[in-house]
Simulated scan of single mutants.
Amino acid sequence: MGAITYEDGIAILQLIVFPFILVASLFIWKRTGWRVGSKIWRYPFTLSLIRLAGSIATLYSINHETTKVRIAIFVCQLIGIAPLLLAYVGMLRLIDLKKSIPPLLLLLVTLMAFAGLMIGIIGVSTADTTNGYTPGTLSKAAMGLFLAVYVITMLLTTWLFYTHSFTMLRYQKKLFLGTALSAPFLLVRLIFSALGDYTSNKTFSMESLAENNHTSLTAYLCMSVLEEIISMVIAMVFGVSAVLEADFVKPTPEAGREEKPDEV
């Protein structure tokens, strides 16, 4: 049996934390309604599954280190950004009770995230890994879309708060707080990935992570894994608190209509 490395320890941390995020997202999803809630809470649920899959692949590589397993780990690292961002787009949908933001705009932001996801997967899976992984044009384009989604989502959230802050219900304010407090951690998470794609600094490269470079793994832990965990824990805590509020309004499939949540 191979030795447990620094990278494996990070994977074990994710295996411990993300099941709790998965359960929390399922609880909020149920309270919101399985059908309408799927546009919001399926994303943190999906992120949890991706992180668990990536962690399992990392631990599997202890005794089965192959190029395909390493690519699977890289893909899991990359595609987690899309559901992470979409979780906050979903929270924005739930905050926007009055439908002040044009639905077409939110749809466009969502499509941008999915486009980044598809382009990123193709970029990683088709990259030449003979001499190590180097981000190509597609990976850089995907990262650019993810950064754009973050900026647009935060601008829309800020605008919504300043235009409706005096009329927001308690549950809306809690969701906004969840987004606002998570935003700095989410930004650092994205900066880490952007530095890996747009610079030649080996500290932030996937290649260095694969080589178990201590400096790179510490940067990955502090700027990616922990930032992502903290941002999602904050979002889930405020999300659970919001749906338990007496004034929580569950959205319905019909445009412009809402109803009180079913009792649980």
Score class of each variant (00 low, 15 high):
108 L>G: 11
136 G>E: 07
166 F>W: 08
103 P>T: 12
129 T>K: 15
170 R>V: 05
176 F>K: 04
84 L>V: 09
108 L>Y: 10
109 V>R: 11
181 L>Q: 00
34 W>D: 01
60 Y>A: 09
67 T>S: 03
24 A>S: 12
74 F>E: 15
170 R>A: 09
248 F>P: 02
20 F>A: 14
56 I>D: 03
28 I>V: 15
237 V>C: 02
78 L>I: 00
174 K>V: 06
4 I>P: 10
79 I>E: 00
239 G>F: 03
146 F>K: 05
22 L>H: 08
163 T>P: 03
112 M>A: 14
254 E>P: 04
80 G>W: 09
232 M>N: 10
10 I>E: 04
35 R>T: 09
114 F>A: 03
225 V>F: 03
126 T>M: 13
77 Q>T: 08
81 I>T: 12
214 H>P: 02
186 L>Y: 05
65 E>M: 09
27 F>D: 13
139 S>D: 12
4 I>N: 10
5 T>F: 10
6 Y>W: 04
216 S>T: 01
59 L>S: 01
108 L>I: 15
169 L>W: 10
244 L>T: 11
17 V>E: 06
106 L>A: 07
84 L>G: 10
50 I>Y: 08
128 D>M: 15
254 E>R: 13
108 L>V: 13
32 T>S: 14
198 Y>W: 08
213 N>E: 08
103 P>V: 11
137 T>N: 09
132 G>K: 09
129 T>D: 15
193 S>T: 02
70 R>I: 02
48 S>L: 12
115 A>T: 11
193 S>L: 11
236 M>S: 13
21 I>C: 05
136 G>P: 01
72 A>W: 01
83 P>C: 05
96 D>L: 04
200 S>E: 15
263 E>A: 08
46 T>H: 02
175 L>R: 00
166 F>T: 10
122 I>W: 06
229 I>Q: 14
192 F>C: 06
35 R>W: 14
178 G>W: 01
64 H>V: 13
255 A>D: 09
71 I>V: 06
38 S>W: 07
158 T>L: 09
33 G>Q: 11
77 Q>P: 02
175 L>I: 01
105 L>T: 11
202 K>N: 10
55 S>P: 04
242 A>W: 04
187 L>K: 01
171 Y>M: 05
146 F>D: 11
